[in-house]
């Protein structure tokens, strides 16, 4: 089966290989529902490896490291393609960063980051399955506890 084509973009970013149920999570992370950039969203696309996948294209927009790190948390196998002049100029394989600086919330209500003006900081201890440890309260969180800031 041939992959569904969405309009090619001149400049911007294509995020591919998103787990199909995380497509809109990625849209949320990028906060692209209220910008003027052209955004194409496709989900439930056929993928040999993933069976069903999602894909997001954003015109005239390049991602910050923080955004890429956030995507890694919800779509650990995603690829981020940078498009310039209709060509893929760079392909970034997302990675769970060793240190997550102010990206996710600590699930421990008694943690200092939930009680004082302290930005969150996590150390990832395993990437699959995802495990992170709060730098402050030392609580370990798995994928199910991860809540993006």
């Amino acid at each position: 089966m041939k992959e569904l084509k969405i309009n090619a973009i001149r400049e911007g970013t294509v995020i591919d290989h998103i787990p199909h149920n995380m497509t809109f999570k990625v849209v949320d992370i990028l906060g692209i529902t209220d910008t003027n950039n052209i955004v194409s969203i496709a989900t439930n696309l056929y993928s040999k490896k993933m069976r069903k996948k999602g894909l997001v294209k954003i015109g005239s927009r390049f991602l910050t490291k923080e955004e890429v790190d956030k995507i890694a948390l919800v779509a650990p196998n995603a690829s981020v393609n940078i498009i310039k002049n209709f060509e893929v100029t760079e392909k970034i394989k997302v990675n769970i960063p060793q240190i997550l600086n102010n990206i996710i919330k600590c699930s421990n209500p008694r943690c200092i980051t939930n009680n004082d003006k302290v930005s969150t900081l996590f150390h990832s201890t395993s990437s699959s399955p995802l495990k992170v440890r709060c730098h402050y309260c030392e609580r370990c969180m798995g994928k199910e506890d991860v809540e993006l800031l």
Binding site: R110, I112, N115, D116, V118, H135, Y136, C137, R139
Partner: peptide, 9 residues
């Protein structure tokens, strides 16, 4: 301190 992580901070 009663809050987890207060000492590190």
């Amino acid at each position: 301190h009663p809050i987890d992580g207060a000492a590190r901070f």
